[in-house]
């Protein structure tokens, strides 16, 4: 299959039954998207496919053939973090960090479409992501912060 991942055309040999998440993590060396529930409940595998937020654990790799995929790796790196990543760290919204990539992708997707979201809109947009450690208060705070940085 062929994909454009984070702007670069890639090719991967996939088995019919693999998910996009498996392909990203195991075939393309992009472990940023996390693998937790594998049934759409936690959002830690969130990526953008053709610009849309999806759970990559529920997308069949074959069905992603020819699509444009953006993962958390495209947003920023340790040296050059994305404003959303910076805001998460500053707001203390990262504890174990497992859920963070998923939240960051979901929040970045929100801010791309809606640079000044209300709290209700933030909650709504992040409703598909679960954090077992920090309160949602700090995460909300992080997204508000990120909105301020980016606007």
């Amino acid at each position: 299959m062929r994909l454009v991942v984070n702007g670069t055309p890639r090719e991967a040999d996939v088995r019919e039954h693999e998910s996009l998440l498996t392909v990203l993590r195991e075939r393309l060396g992009l472990p940023g998207s996390k693998n937790a529930c594998e049934q759409g409940e936690c959002g830690s595998c969130s990526v953008l496919v053709d610009g849309e937020l999806v759970c990559s654990c529920l997308v069949l790799a074959a069905a992603a053939d020819g699509r444009r995929v953006e993962t958390v790796e495209a947003l920023g790196s340790a040296e050059r973090p994305h404003p959303v990543q910076r805001a998460f760290v500053e707001a203390g919204a990262v504890q174990c960090g497992f859920c963070t990539p998923g939240f960051v992708v979901a929040a970045a997707a929100l801010l791309r479409e809606n640079p000044e979201p209300t709290d209700a809109e933030i909650r709504e947009a992040l409703a598909g992501n679960i954090c077992r450690c920090t309160g949602y208060g700090t995460i909300l705070d992080a997204v508000r912060r990120a909105a301020r940085i980016t606007t």
């Binding site: 759409g40 849309e52 937020l53 947009a125 409703a127």
Partner: peptide, 9 residues
Amino acid sequence: AATPQIRNV
């Protein structure tokens, strides 16, 4: 119903 991610797909 479900989550934003799931409603997109």
